[in-house]
Every structure is written in C-alpha cells, then in structure tokens.
C-alpha cells in the first residue's frame, strides 16, 4: 500500500468547474462591489442614502444654499408662516428657519460624527480586547453591563452633570452612552472569528497578537461594525438633539436642531413651524441612517453569499 494512488486528472483544472452554470469570476476586491450591487437593489436603503446625501450636501454647502444669514434678525418678519420668501417660515426674531436648519445641521451632523468616531474607536478597542483576551473579558463586560443598565439618554445626562453642559461634553456623553452596545457587538463578532481555524493557523505560525488582530480579526468583523456605525450615527444625532433640547448640549443662539425645537416649543400655538421643521430634520436624518443601516445589514449578511 506504499505505492501511489493513480492520478486520473489534474487538480488545477477539475471537471467540476465545467458543471457549474456560471464560472465564479468574482475577485475579492470585488466583494465591496458585490455588496454595493446588493445594496443598490434595496429601495429602502437607497432612499435612506439619497436623503442622507441631500442633507449632507445641503449642510456642507449651507453658506451657499441658505438664502439668509443665520443671525439676520428682522423684527417685522417675526413668526412668519412658510411662504415663497421664507420657505419654512421665520422664528421669533425674524430669522429664516430654512437657513438655520441648514447651518444647524453642521452642528448636529458634526456632533454625530465626532461622538460616533469616539465610540467606534473605544468600542472596537475594548470589544477586541474582551473577545480576544478572555482574561479581561469578565471585567470589561461587567463595566459595560453597568453602563448598559442605565437608559442611554439618562447616562448621558449624568455624564453631563459631571462634566458640565456644552457641545464638547455633550459629544463625549453621547459617545460614552453608545460604547457598551458597540463593545457587545464587536466582542461577539471577535469571539466567533477567533475560533476559526485560520486564526489557529497563524497562531501556530507564531504571528504576534497585534498582527493577528489587525490583519485577521478586524477585516473579518468589518460587516457588523459598518452596520453598527450607521445605526449608531442616527442614534447619536438623536441623543445629541435631545440633550440640546434639554439645554445640556448646544446652547440656544446656536442653530442646533434640538435647541431650535426647544425654543419653538413656547411658540407652538402661534408658530408651529418653528419646532416642526427642525424636528422633521432630526427625524428624517435619523430615519435615513436607520434605513441605510438595515439595508447594509442585509447586503453584508454572509448568509446571502
């Protein structure tokens, strides 16, 4: 039995490939193209994306698009209803609400961006540590569980109570409130990847841990991270607006959406547009992020591959 088994065809060209209906020509760089194709078929996700792009475009180029300066007050124009001259009406100082929403979006989106970035960096780091080094797992997860036992907004308020009100502190508070759910998602993704044989293989090769994490683990948990980040973006903008509404974030002269809703609240019976339109802006952006996030989750789901 020491002899060789006869080879009856060459492995490099197995006949099985001939049977497949479509030869698989997909390159892995094309993986993201594949995801994009799947995403672009999802009408809801594309709707979300379009809304987001419109908002981001409008907000970024606010100084060109906005018909009025944000702080131009005209006493005779105060509390005007939406019309051709003032698209979304004016507020109690006669400032154009449409212009203020565009400019305010800079603050809102920036708050979302910074707090999500902060939460992502800290969340991934802690999640990877908890998932990869099981000895620290218990400690990290118990701290996260404690943080999670507070409602996110309440936690943010507590943090602001400690740090003091203001835009920066609001962003930090929103980020901290978002970290626990991040850590959980990343940790569970790491746990499922670290048991894979290819991780064992590189461990057997003697590759150092930081390389295993950066080259083998992180690239394989990108999908849940992307979904999580998108959904958190919406959530953070909402929390930031809520904090501003409560007077703990951006302060009223600033055209932040939450703060604008707060100011308009006192004029609700005379000028419903003062609160409604900033509120709608918040709702639309958050909704768009959620729609996109759900679509991304479907597009990135490996079960569909």
């Amino acid at each position: 039995m020491n002899g060789k088994v006869t080879e009856w065809h060459v492995d490099t060209n197995p006949p099985i490939q001939l049977l497949a209906q479509e030869p698989k020509q997909v390159e892995s760089q094309a993986y993201w193209i594949l995801v994009w194709k799947r995403l672009s078929k999802n009408i809801t996700a594309m709707g979300g994306l379009v809304i987001l792009l419109l908002f981001i475009g409008g907000v970024v180029f606010a100084s060109y698009i906005a018909p009025y300066p944000i702080d131009q007050m005209k006493f005779e124009d105060r509390l005007l209803a939406p019309s051709a001259t003032h698209l979304l009406g004016t507020d109690d100082f006669g400032r154009d609400i449409f212009s203020r929403i565009l400019h305010g979006g800079q603050i809102s989106l920036m708050m979302g961006l910074i707090s999500v970035t902060l939460a992502t960096v800290v969340g991934i780091t802690l999640g990877v540590i908890a998932g990869f080094y099981r000895k620290l797992d218990m400690f990290i997860m118990q701290v996260m569980d404690i943080l999670m036992s507070f409602p996110a907004l309440l936690l943010a308020i507590v943090i602001i109570a400690v740090l003091g009100a203001g835009l920066t502190n609001a962003m930090i508070a929103v980020a901290i409130a978002a970290i626990p759910s991040y850590v959980r998602v990343v940790r569970s993704a790491v746990l499922s990847i670290r048991e894979k044989e290819y991780i064992e293989a590189v461990q057997a090769l003697g590759i150092r841990d930081y390389k295993i994490i950066s080259r083998h683990i992180i690239p394989n948990i990108l999908s849940p991270i992307i979904v999580m980040t998108t959904l958190l973006f919406g959530e953070s903008i909402l929390s930031a607006a809520a904090l501003s509404f409560l007077g703990l974030g951006a302060q009223p002269p600033a055209p932040e959406w939450g703060a604008m809703v707060f100011v308009g609240r006192t004029f609700l019976s005379q000028a419903w547009w003062m609160s409604l339109f900033p509120g709608l802006a918040i709702m639309l952006v958050v909704l768009a992020f959620n729609m996109l996030g759900d679509g991304l989750r479907d597009a990135l789901d490996p079960k569909q591959n």
Binding site: E197, A201, V202
Partner: peptide
C-alpha cells in the same frame, strides 16, 4: 514558543475554514 513553532506546523481539516477569506 514562537521560535519553536517554525519547526512544527499544522495542516488543518477544513480547507474552507483554515484560510482567511479576506486575504
């Protein structure tokens, strides 16, 4: 151990799980 592992290696059972799909 890292030095030693250059002298011993492992070949795995499942060729679908033993290669990083992203590399």
């Amino acid at each position: 151990l890292r030095k030693l592992r250059k002298r011993m290696q492992l070949v795995f059972q499942d060729p679908y799980a033993s290669l990083n799909p992203r590399m």
